[in-house]
Amino acid sequence: MAETAPATGPAESGGDEETRRDFLYLATGAVGAVGVVAAVWPLVDSMNPATNVLALASTEVDLSPVAVGQSITVVWQGKPVFIRHRTETEIAEARDVDVSALRDPQSDADRVIKAPWLIVVGICTHLGCIPLGQKPGDPRGDYDGWFCPCHGSHYDSSGRIRKGPAPRNLVVPGYAYLNDTTVKIG
């Protein structure tokens, strides 16, 4: 075909021919698009946590060495978790509160499985600092719990925000008791 102008569009006769040709291009394009998506997925998924990171998603803790009135800090998913073996006074203080007056209303019963054991993530819900109160001699704030030195948030003996800029209570992670002395966090 000695056309002078390069063909840019079909010069065929018959709609039938066109439909068949278009279907081929459509099918090719569709299969190609599927391929592109399938190729992109591993690139995206590779950025998800690797299998060894996921394996550290839960931590088991032996509670037997923690005496009444003592606190320990364990690491779970890279975050500090406060485990406090609460005294009777602390438990009573945690219960004797008008829940509706709290900034983030939650009863103590809703925050613990066994009353003597409080387990909360030790990250201030304001801007992420680690509150003080785990070690003897640490300031514990006005509510006998924890005190965040960064901007002055006070948490009570149930880890609830009582005073200061933090908006929410200290987060209670998912946990379960495997037996009387072992808890699995996460």
Binding site: P42, L43, D45, S46, A50, T51, N52
Partner: peptide
């Protein structure tokens, strides 16, 4: 080795 064994599709990449 971390990439080959633990990263999702790491071996492939």
């Amino acid at each position: 080795q971390q990439i080959m064994r633990n990263v999702n599709y790491g071996w492939m990449l």
